[in-house]
C-alpha cells in the first residue's frame, strides 16, 4: 500500500487537474462535430489557461480578500476531492477519510466561496449570479445526499473505498434498481452542480440567463484561469465519481503499479465516454427556465428517495 498508495493519490490529482481541461475540450469538440463545425481542438482549454495565466491580474476596486481567495479555494477544494475519491485505487493513505458526505461538502465549499466572491464585487450581475447559484445549490443538496444514502446502503457505510470495493465484489449490485435509480439521481444532481444544460448554459453570453458565468464576470487573467480550471475539475471529478460508482470495474483494489496504470487508463476512458454522452445530450436539450429547475431537481429527489426505499423492498441485490 504505502508507496503505491501515495503514487495513486498523486496520480489521481494529476490526472484530474491535467485532464479536466482536456475533458472540456473534448466535450466542446463533440458538440462542434454534432453541430457541423470543425471545433477548436481538444487542447484548446489548456491554451486558454496558459494565456490567461500570463495575462495581467486585475483587482476591481472595492473587492477584498474573498474575491482573491475564492478561485484558489475552488481549485484546492476540488483537488482535495480528487485525492479523496477512489478514482483509480481504493487503498490509499487517505482512504480512511474518503467519506462521501465530506466529498459533497467540499464541493459545496467551492460553490460558497465563489458565491461570496460574486457578492464581494458589489455589482448587480455578481449578486444575481450568487443568488441563483446558491438557490440551485440549496436545492441540489437533498438530492445528492439522498443518493449518497442510497449508494451507501449495500456497503453499510458512506466510506467511498468501502462502497467501491463492495460493488467490485458483488457485481450484481450495479444492476439493482436501487443502484440504477441512485445513479440517475446523481447524474441530474451533477448536471446542476456543474452548471450544465439543462440547468445552466456554460457558453452563454446573455447576462440575464447566466447563473455561474454571472458570478465570475469580474475575474480576469490568472484568477479567471483558476476559476475555469476549478469548474472544469469539478466536472471531471463528478463524472469520475459517477463512473466509479456506476461501473467500478478496473479500480485497483490491490497495490500493484501495473494495475494502477490500467485503472488510470480505464478512468480516462470511462470519463471520456460519459463526457461524450453529456455533450451529445446537450445538443438535443434546451436550457430550462430558472424557475423550472426546481421541478427537475424534485424529480431527481424522488429518484433518490425511490432508490433508498427501493433498497428496502426490492431484494435484487444478490449479495445480501
Amino acid at each position: 500500500m504505502s508507496a503505491t498508495g501515495y503514487v495513486a493519490v498523486a496520480a489521481q490529482v494529476a490526472v484530474v487537474a491535467g485532464g479536466a481541461p482536456l475533458l472540456t475540450g473534448w466535450m466542446r469538440q463533440v458538440r462542434a462535430r454534432l453541430e457541423g463545425r470543425a471545433g477548436a481542438g481538444v487542447v484548446q482549454p489548456w491554451r486558454d489557461a496558459r494565456k490567461l495565466l500570463r495575462k495581467e491580474p486585475v483587482s476591481p476596486t472595492g473587492t477584498g480578500p474573498a474575491f482573491r481567495l475564492a478561485p484558489l479555494l475552488l481549485v484546492a477544494g476540488t483537488a482535495v476531492v480528487a485525492a479523496l475519491v477512489p478514482l483509480a485505487a481504493t487503498r490509499t493513505p487517505v482512504s480512511g477519510s474518503a467519506d462521501l458526505i465530506l466529498v459533497v461538502a467540499l464541493l459545496a465549499l467551492g460553490t460558497v466561496a465563489l458565491a461570496l466572491a460574486g457578492l464581494d464585487t458589489g455589482t448587480a450581475f455578481g449578486g444575481m449570479g450568487a443568488s441563483r447559484e446558491m438557490t440551485i445549490a440549496a436545492l441540489v443538496e437533498p438530492t445528492i445526499l439522498l443518493a449518497v444514502f442510497a449508494v451507501s446502503i449495500p456497503a453499510g457505510s458512506t466510506n467511498l473505498p468501502a462502497i467501491v470495493a463492495g460493488t467490485i465484489d458483488h457485481p450484481a449490485r450495479t444492476a439493482s434498481p436501487a443502484e440504477l435509480l441512485a445513479v440517475a439521481a446523481l447524474v441530474v444532481a451533477v448536471l446542476a452542480e456543474t452548471g450544465r444544460i439543462p440547468v445552466d448554459n456554460p457558453a452563454t453570453h446573455l447576462e440575464l440567463t447566466m447563473v455561474h458565468e454571472a458570478m465570475v464576470l469580474e475575474y480576469a487573467g490568472p484568477d479567471l484561469a483558476l476559476v475555469e480550471l476549478g469548474s472544469q475539475m469539478r466536472l471531471a471529478v463528478l463524472l469520475g465519481l459517477v463512473a466509479t460508482l456506476a461501473a467500478p470495474w478496473g479500480v485497483a483494489t490491490g497495490g500493484s503499479p501495473a494495475l494502477l496504470a490500467l485503472a488510470l487508463a480505464l478512468l480516462v476512458a470511462k470519463v471520456a465516454v460519459l463526457g461524450t454522452a453529456l455533450a451529445a445530450a446537450e445538443v438535443f436539450r434546451a436550457k430550462v427556465r430558472l424557475f423550472k429547475v426546481p421541478e427537475l431537481l424534485a424529480g431527481s429527489f424522488v429518484l433518490a428517495l425511490l432508490a433508498v426505499v427501493g433498497s428496502y423492498f426490492l431484494t435484487g441485490e444478490a449479495g445480501r
Partner: peptide, 19 residues
C-alpha cells in the same frame, strides 16, 4: 503554481468595476 507560467511578474492592477 498559478504564478509559474507568467513570463514576467505582472503587477496586479486596480481597475474600476466593470459597469
Amino acid at each position: 503554481l498559478a504564478r509559474l507560467p507568467a513570463r514576467r511578474r505582472a503587477r496586479r492592477r486596480d481597475a474600476r468595476l466593470w459597469d
